[in-house]
């Protein structure tokens, strides 16, 4: 694997995480629990799609084969997406959506903070811009985790169930393979093992305040970074890719 290939894959993975979570969140559009939250969730979805846009633009310029970013977003096959399994999980209800977002936001803030020091200036620039957005996402999701966990009996039960179900996708946040090794060596990407402890303690702190418990079940799911997805992913792709496949090269 050349450095160029590794850096390309690294950026595409970052973009895939944003794209798939953005797509999931956008499913809330018009279905939010209250009008204000409907707008909040779709704002976050738009931030994520915007990050995807910047990351894919960087990826295609690294690859330098004349691809456009719509091809990356809409014309790859299932196995060619290498997002975290966490972000493709179903919305289920508002509690699940918030817990998924919270786990991701804590991680993503740490990633962007570190990427602000990337040896690639373009990536550092994207990280700096995205970090501001992510800080707000984290504030939003943290406040909701606490409200729901420490709220009514029903909200506590639902959000605890979400924590129990989604916990098995959290180890994958710290997955590493040769793509990561390559970019870490050159200071292009981040060594996510450096902030595993920070992630753990941040999540534990908020969950404790929310009177929620971390499941003791230690079995963990992985595969997203190798293109092996959970069953929900195909349905997400068919909806997301429909326009570009039905009307090839369409623009708007």
């Amino acid at each position: 694997m050349t450095t160029q290939e590794a850096f390309y894959s690294y950026i595409v993975r970052l973009g895939d995480d944003s794209l798939i979570l953005g797509q999931r969140l956008s499913e809330w559009c018009g279905h939010g629990p209250v009008l204000e939250e409907d707008i909040a969730l779709t704002n976050i979805a738009l931030d994520l799609i915007g990050q995807t846009n910047n990351l894919y633009e960087l990826a295609v310029s690294i690859e330098n084969k004349g691809k456009n970013i719509d091809q990356l977003a809409f014309l790859r096959l299932e196995k060619e997406y290498e997002n975290l399994l966490l972000v493709e999980q179903l919305n289920v209800d508002f509690g699940y959506t918030i817990v998924r977002q919270f786990f991701f936001d804590v991680y993503r803030k740490l990633v962007f903070e570190a990427l602000c020091n990337s040896s690639d200036e373009r990536l550092a620039g994207i990280a700096e811009k995205s970090l501001k957005e992510t800080k707000y996402h984290l504030k939003h999701s943290s406040e909701w985790v606490i409200r729901l966990g420490d709220g009514t009996e029903e909200s506590h039960r639902r959000v605890q169930e979400a924590v129990n179900t989604l916990w098995k996708f959290t180890d994958e946040l710290f997955f590493q393979d040769e793509v990561d090794q390559n970019v870490i060596e050159l200071g292009l990407g981040v060594d996510n093992s450096n902030f595993k402890v920070t992630w753990d303690s941040h999540v534990e702190h908020v969950l404790t305040e929310a009177t929620l418990t971390i499941p003791s079940n230690s079995w963990q799911h992985a595969g997203g970074r190798k293109g092996i997805h959970t069953e929900h992913f195909g349905y997400l792709l068919s909806e997301m890719q429909y326009m570009q496949r039905a009307y090839p090269n369409m623009e708007w």
């Binding site: 209250v34 009008l35 204000e36 939250e37 707008i39 909040a40 704002n43 707000y136 504030k139 939003h140 406040e143 409200r147």
Partner: peptide, 16 residues
């Protein structure tokens, strides 16, 4: 707008 408390009202106002 509607919100459960002042902090949520600020957040919602930011988003809306």
């Amino acid at each position: 707008l509607r919100a459960a408390d002042a902090q949520m009202a600020i957040d919602n106002a930011r988003d809306v």
